[in-house]
């Protein structure tokens, strides 16, 4: 079972997609160009400080608002390994899975961790933080298979190779 560690960036409830990446930057050509504006309305310093393998921890309803897929994409571009939140908004959840960004739901953990500290995650099993274990629910099989195939693009590529 995959296991990884990462540094925490801690955010609150209802972090909407306009905060994750504001509309005015959506017409930039690539997600690479957009990523420096991630979280700019709320914490403009954040995108410059995130390092590969970092983990975002947030409250409830992370990713609420618009259908913009650049939201999970900028997080991936910034090197975010996974997002742990009390809950996720629906469209953001689907978009993340389709791009292979791991999302973990846990009610308790976000209230019990500090920014800048390190957390360990065992995929589909638990979160270990300061010697305490927080259990996590495994993802349904159809979603896990999309993540395993490397996202929906790869999964469709495979399908179309078989069809053609």
């Amino acid at each position: 079972m995959e296991k990884f560690k990462g540094n925490i960036w801690l955010l609150g409830d209802d972090i909407d997609t306009d905060i994750i990446i504001p509309t005015e930057y959506l017409a930039l050509k690539t997600v690479e160009e957009m990523k420096e504006y991630a979280f700019s309305p709320l914490r403009p310093e954040l995108s410059g400080n995130i390092e590969t393998g970092d983990i975002i921890v947030a409250g409830k309803n992370f990713g609420c608002g618009s259908s913009r897929e650049q939201a999970p994409e900028v997080l991936i571009a910034l090197g975010i390994k996974c997002v742990i939140a009390k809950s996720f908004a629906r469209i953001f959840f689907r978009n993340s899975i389709n791009n292979g960004l791991l999302l973990i739901e846990n009610e308790e953990f976000p209230d019990n961790c500090k920014e800048g500290t390190s957390v360990e995650v065992q995929l589909n099993k638990n979160i270990i933080y300061e010697n305490k274990e927080y259990k996590i629910q495994p993802l349904p099989d159809n979603l896990m298979s999309i993540i395993k195939e490397g996202g929906l693009v790869e999964s469709m590529k495979k399908r179309n190779k078989q069809v053609n």
Partner: peptide
């Protein structure tokens, strides 16, 4: 309902 652009492509 709304979906992302990858799902729309699919």
């Amino acid at each position: 309902t709304g979906i992302g652009y990858t799902e729309m492509a699919a």
